[in-house]
């Protein structure tokens, strides 16, 4: 068994869930911030977008790491 190979496969296969879960976390954070500050839908939209960007950024980081390692 190749250690780098298994490591990469396991890490890559969890990326799909990460995108959606980080945007859900952003939604939850925005929802409670809205409740706390009294705005309507301001922080929800901002934080959901930031969560989506976080998911995409995670994919970018993993791909950058994948290009640098040799199998």
């Amino acid at each position: 068994m190749d250690k780098q190979f298994i490591k990469q496969i396991t890490r890559m296969s969890s990326l799909g869930l990460n995108v959606i879960i980080s945007s859900l976390i952003g939604f939850a954070m925005g929802y409670y911030l809205d409740k706390y500050t009294g705005y309507i839908y301001l922080f929800v939209i901002i934080f959901t977008l930031i969560g989506f960007i976080a998911g995409i950024y995670e994919i970018y980081k993993q791909i950058k790491k994948e290009i640098n390692t040799k199998i």
Binding site: F5, I9, M12, L15, G16, L17, Q62, E66
Partner: peptide, 16 residues
């Protein structure tokens, strides 16, 4: 091996 890793990366994005 390289191709399998890239295939799984792409499939993870489709899965999302």
């Amino acid at each position: 091996k390289k191709l399998i890793v890239w295939m799984i990366t792409g499939m993870a994005i489709m899965e999302s």
